[in-house]
């Protein structure tokens, strides 16, 4: 599904990523500054690696050898930003609808805004603006917005770090449920080893650009 091996030169160290993911949740864990976000951004196309190859569904979206660098908008990757990056001048509904693929009327997908809002329990927030909702709710809106694009892969950058303990626990469980429902691989960045334990089917620990696999298999709890 996702195969990525690339290098990226950073100011203080060289980052090396070697990721293979078929399904489930991959948790990237490590202290801040370890290069976790850089890995996500390289996969999404927000940053360009120095060399290597990234393949999604056997199709190269980046390859230094073949000179391929597919623009972000064509990679079909959902991205949930650390600070959610909701558009402050649009309602929750407008935010969620922003990325709906245009060809949608031809395709027979039945993914409607209402369904996704319902799934994430934010239907009552439809007409609110981002500054009128809580952090946990913003998180759900950001998730809904990313999922509406029908991505083949979902990247989450510290999705729960800004939330209080209780909301965090709830959302962890919901992320697990969502992943099972949606059947696309998630890559989740976190600095919290415990969170990685709870969420990760596969766990990769990063430190100053070097990676170490902790949990590799298909064992899944819950």
């Amino acid at each position: 599904m996702l195969k990525a091996h690339f290098k990226k030169k950073l100011p203080t160290f060289d980052l090396e990523a070697n990721i293979s993911l078929n399904s489930g949740i991959l948790a990237l864990v490590g202290p801040s500054g370890a290069g976790k976000t850089t890995i996500l951004q390289c996969i999404a196309g927000l940053q360009t690696p120095s060399q290597g190859e990234i393949k999604i569904r056997e199709k190269a979206v980046y390859s230094s050898e073949q000179g391929i660098n597919v623009p972000i908008r064509n990679r079909r990757i959902g991205y949930v930003f650390q600070d959610y990056a909701l558009f402050p001048h649009m309602t929750v509904e407008k935010n969620v609808m922003y990325g709906i693929p245009k060809k949608d009327n031809i395709s027979n997908k039945v993914l409607t805004v209402s369904k996704v809002l319902e799934m994430l329990k934010i239907e009552h927030l439809r007409h609110r603006y981002p500054n009128q909702i809580s952090g946990g709710e913003k998180q759900r809106v950001a998730l809904a917005r990313a999922l509406m694009t029908e991505p083949e892969l979902l990247l989450l950058d510290e999705p729960l770090s800004a939330l209080d303990q209780e909301t965090r626990g709830t959302l962890q469980q919901e992320l697990l449920k969502l992943q099972a429902q949606w059947q696309i691989p998630f890559i989740l960045v976190t600095h919290d080893p415990q969170e990685a334990e709870i969420l990760g089917d596969q766990i990769i620990k990063l430190d100053r650009g070097r990676q170490e696999s902790i949990r590799g298999g298909s064992l899944k709890i819950g």
Partner: peptide, 26 residues
């Protein structure tokens, strides 16, 4: 916030659409 423009990019928007729907109103 450049993150908002990046977010729009990951949602499949082209640069002109980002400029008109995100940058200009903000």
């Amino acid at each position: 916030d450049p993150n908002l423009e990046k977010a729009a990019r990951t949602l499949g928007a082209k640069e002109l659409r980002i400029f008109i729907t995100i940058t200009l109103p903000l």
